[in-house]
């Protein structure tokens, strides 16, 4: 743990850390594009693409969600520098996922879209999670942060319902194995713990 904080200290002030994180965040996209273009997605590339973008959307959400917890456990305050970028990437992968679903599963047929949105709980949960991400994406700039002040922090607590809805989106699709839903659920709860404690202390 010690050398990790040392490492964070080393990173301080270096100009290349943000570009590095940016490139790392692009790697899943590279994998998606590589599979889609070179045909490595197998006989059902539509399904593969939906699963892949969805997996990376929830993983990106978990990464940005973990920033606060890592800060309070390990004192990694430097991570805050990346939080905006990580959040925007989570929004990006969630939007990519939605785009793929709308194109390939619903074929942009609005009767199908409306039917799915009114009948299928997991789709409602997933779509609601994406909708709640939007205001956070839109207000991620410095101007909004200054302008909104205290309300900006309140607005960005939307990450909690987003995580819950994203998890419901996963768990309501379970067919043959609980493993993935269980891992995501545990991670979300564990990462939320420091904040729950903070709420208690500030009461």
């Amino acid at each position: 743990m010690v050398d990790v904080t040392d490492r964070a200290r080393q990173l301080r002030g270096k100009g290349w850390d943000k570009p590095l994180v940016f490139v790392l965040c692009l790697l899943p996209l590279a994998a998606v594009v590589y599979g889609a273009v070179l045909g490595g997605l197998g006989p059902d590339p539509v399904k593969a693409l939906i699963v892949m973008t969805g997996d990376w959307a929830i993983r990106a959400l978990l990464v940005v969600f973990s920033v606060s917890a890592l800060r309070s456990w390990l004192g990694w305050s430097r991570l805050l520098r990346f939080r905006r970028m990580l959040g925007l990437f989570a929004g990006f992968y969630a939007s990519l996922h939605l785009l793929v679903v709308a194109t390939y599963l619903f074929a942009w047929d609005w009767t199908i879209v409306l039917e799915e949105l009114s009948e299928r709980p997991y789709i409602i949960a997933g779509f609601a999670a994406w909708l709640l991400l939007l205001p956070m994406v839109v207000t991620s700039n410095n101007y909004s942060i200054r302008r909104l002040g205290r309300r900006w922090r309140q607005l960005h607590r939307l990450i909690y319902p987003v995580m819950g809805l994203a998890w419901l989106h996963v768990v309501w699709q379970v067919r043959s194995s609980y493993l993935e839903a269980l891992i995501y659920g545990l991670l979300i709860v564990v990462l939320a713990l420091p904040r729950l404690r903070r709420f208690q202390f500030t009461r």
Partner: peptide, 15 residues
């Protein structure tokens, strides 16, 4: 209950 059965993807399909 969780998805429509009106359509199917005949495999192999492509993007």
């Amino acid at each position: 209950p969780r998805w429509s059965q009106r359509y199917e993807r005949r495999l192999p399909s492509s993007l």
